[in-house]
Structures are given as C-alpha cells and as structure tokens.
Amino acid sequence: MRSFLFVPGDSQRKFDKASAGDADALILDLEDSVAASAKEAARQTVAEMLQAPRGAQARFVRVNALDTGLTLQDLAAVMPHAPDGIVLPKCEGPDDLRKLAHYLAAFEATHDLGETKILAIVTETAASLFTLGQYRGVDPRLWGMMWGAEDLAASLGARENAENAVYHEPFRLARNLCLAGAAAAGVVAVDSICATLDDLSIVETEAKAARRDGFGAKAVIHPKHVAPVNTAFTPTEDEVAWARKVLDAFAANPDAGVVRIDGKMVDKPHERAARAIMTAADKQT
C-alpha cells in the first residue's frame, strides 16, 4: 500500500469518489473531520461504507483517540463489518497500542474475524516522541506507524509547523523518529499528509523524499494527491533493472558477501534493498 486517502466519515459523496479512485487504501475518518455532534451519524455512515462492494482497495477506519471515551463506541459500530485496519490517533506509546489490541481481540472473537491491522499515528503529542523506539514486538497487529504534525504543533505550543512547505526542526525530528521507530519495530513507516492542496509539485517532492528516506507509504487528504504519491512509491524501470542485476549476481555467487556489478562493490545490504524493490514492484503488477 503506497497511498492512504483520508475520507470524512460523514461524507458518502467523498467516499463514492475516493472508492472509485486509485488510492491503495482509504482511511474512513471518525476523528478530526467529524464534528462532535455528528459522531453517531458518522459511525452509521462508515458502517455502510464498509459494507459497500470492495475491490483491491483497503479500507481502514480512524477511530477517536483513547482519551476521548469514544473509541469503544467507534469500534462497536465498525468492527462487525471487518475493516482491513484501524488507525489509532494520538498513540502515546506501547500501552495505548496494547489497549487497542485488547479491544480488537474481543471484537475479533465476537465476530469471527482475523487479526485486524493497526496503523498508529505516533507523533501527535509531545509525550509520544519519547516512546518511538519501544514498539517492537508489542502486538502483531501493528502494521505501520504514521507521523503527523498538526496536533503535535498544538501539543508543543508551536505557532506553526512549517514555512514555505518546509517543516521546522521539531517536526522534522518527529518525522525522523517515526521512521526510525518503525524500522526498529519492523513495520511500515507512513509519511504524513501534504497540507498544500493545489501545488502538486510539493506533494511530489515530499513523496519522493519520503521514499528516498525509507518510508513505505504516504497519507493524503485530497484525491489529486494520490497519483504523485503512487508514482513516487512505485519502483522505476531503472530501479527494477538494478535490483534484478543485484539478485542475479548473488544468486550466481551464493556464498559471496560482496559482488562486483558495473565496476562497483555491492554487499548484502544492497541485496536486501534489491529484494525490497522487487517486492514493491511485484505488488504493482
């Protein structure tokens, strides 16, 4: 999954458009995009969205944060309809992940479901930044870790999180810690949304930088952001050709720790990178 498109949980119209688009996954949102007075109605709407015919596009649901007292009501409304995953906002550490996993285990048993993926948004509070290296082995449902800057700005008391589409240092720190934390946990790192709506070159730049640095996907808030994100996270023909060359060289020399390709020394980390490229390419074919 390369692109995660947020869809307000109270907008059937936006869901219809998004489900006909090219996003690899939708995040049906019960949190920030839904007013407090509309939460109950949105739960019913999201339940109906989950029952709509599905293709290859995954459907995740972002529930309200654990400290709101609304999480269980959200889960009770959506879990009978087997979402592909649950997005947990304002996750402050492994204890929050365990609590959600405990809730999910009960709903999975009740409705005869398999394990539900968890995508945790792990940088939305100041406290969360101090636990990002502690997620390894906490629960097998953890599929990915996403960073976010909007709520973090409020938590830090910052006046802004970026200028001219460049994040300020505290937010770059959060981004980088999320990336490292996800790698340490062995899960997918998901880049935050691009807040610039109309300049797709900024979306493209952010997505390319995210993939370059090791993120495996990016969240988006507008359907027109999906295409540049999907392109950025799809291996190019040159990358695939390089990966095949590396894997072929090691296959021909199975006991070698280092091989020579095009006059350069290539070692085992390159082989692992080549396998990751081929895995990503295979998923897009």
Score class of each variant (00 low, 15 high):
156 L>A: 06
81 H>C: 02
204 E>F: 01
53 P>R: 13
63 V>P: 08
124 E>P: 02
247 L>N: 04
103 Y>L: 14
166 V>I: 14
99 K>G: 01
149 A>H: 10
52 A>Q: 15
129 L>Y: 09
209 A>R: 13
199 D>W: 00
36 A>H: 13
83 P>F: 03
75 L>Q: 05
14 K>G: 02
274 A>M: 02
152 L>A: 04
235 P>C: 08
279 T>R: 00
247 L>V: 13
216 G>Y: 00
117 K>S: 14
257 G>C: 03
29 D>W: 03
153 A>F: 08
37 S>A: 15
237 E>K: 14
32 D>W: 05
62 R>D: 06
20 A>R: 07
140 P>C: 04
159 R>V: 10
15 F>K: 03
35 A>E: 14
203 V>K: 06
283 K>S: 15
178 C>Y: 09
23 A>Y: 06
36 A>C: 05
219 A>H: 09
157 G>H: 09
20 A>D: 09
185 A>N: 07
105 A>R: 13
105 A>S: 11
283 K>I: 01
123 T>N: 05
25 A>M: 05
246 V>R: 05
182 A>W: 05
91 C>E: 03
31 E>M: 07
245 K>A: 12
182 A>Y: 04
197 L>S: 12
133 G>M: 06
114 G>S: 08
176 N>C: 09
26 L>I: 00
228 P>W: 06
186 G>F: 09
249 A>Y: 00
122 V>W: 03
76 A>N: 07
53 P>N: 11
164 N>E: 14
216 G>H: 05
109 A>S: 13
282 D>W: 00
33 S>W: 10
213 D>T: 13
63 V>E: 10
92 E>S: 15
163 E>L: 12
118 I>T: 04
244 R>M: 08
222 H>S: 13
176 N>T: 12
201 S>G: 12
117 K>H: 14
91 C>T: 12
129 L>Q: 02
20 A>E: 10
96 D>E: 10
184 A>K: 09
84 D>G: 11
52 A>I: 08
222 H>C: 07
44 Q>H: 15
18 A>S: 03
237 E>P: 11
131 T>R: 08
15 F>T: 00
232 A>D: 03
121 I>P: 01
82 A>R: 15
154 A>T: 11
285 T>H: 12
66 L>T: 10
90 K>N: 10
190 V>F: 06
218 K>V: 03
87 V>C: 13
35 A>M: 10
37 S>M: 11
69 G>Y: 10
216 G>M: 03
181 G>A: 00
196 T>S: 12
278 M>C: 03
19 S>I: 15
229 V>G: 06
122 V>I: 14
55 G>R: 11
98 R>N: 10
195 A>F: 11
191 D>I: 07
